[in-house]
Amino acid sequence: MYAFNYHRPNSLDAAAQALAANEDAKLLAGGQTMLPTMKQRLAMPSDLIDLSGIAELRGVCEDGDAVVVGAMTTHAEVAANEIVRSKIPALAKLADGIGDPQVRNRGTLGGSIANADPAADYPAAVVGLGATVKTNKREIAADDFFVGLFETALEPGELVVSVRFPVPEAAAYAKFDHPASRYAIVGVMVARTGGGVRVGITGAAPSAFRQTEMEQALAGNFAPDALDGISVSADGLNGDIHASAEYRAHLVGVMAKRAVIAARG
């Protein structure tokens, strides 16, 4: 790891200032991706701004018909939280399936979505549940947040404060996970809401996306059969030693059906 200056501000303003003051500064959330990346010398921030000292970034609360999760809330905290478990059990289950128990004790929601790993689980929840990402500057709709491979709509100096997940009528997440890392080869979040059905997919493409053809089919008939006959194109999907683009396209259909079956209960 290259040398860096370490900061642990105790307010959002102080964190934003520290970020703005150093062009090559990076934010440190749970560090479960950041630190391994730095250890491999793939990143060399001049300054690391540890967000763990900012109390307002952590915790879960109910806000009307939504559940708001602070950016620094760990996966283990989301998985165990009573509000999440009762209002959006699919989100608790997703959080409980990330990595392993030790990673879940440190990794955070904000860190996961700001990193935007194409195989991360949380992006499927943000897109599939139609969440809103609150930053220190504005609110960003899920559909606008994930822009590309490890790329989000976040601007320099902008940091995630919380994510607001509207409570769905029914939802479930199904993933085909990599057996060693538990990252998603393909993960699908299906949610039925008053406004229709959303299908958020991670792992398959450079960034999380919605499958609108499936959404329309499920809006008419929220059943696994509704997805019969929808073929997912492999064009633009990820292919690597673990799974080809064609196989990932196939998995999108399989995982979507499993999610629908689970969401129907």
Partner: peptide, 28 residues
Amino acid sequence: DTSQCGACVVLVDGKSMKACTMLAAQAD
């Protein structure tokens, strides 16, 4: 040393964590 094997697991404030994927400063 790559956050996968768990040989370095310790309890921090009672919770198990990988000590190879955490700065000493974060345990302050």
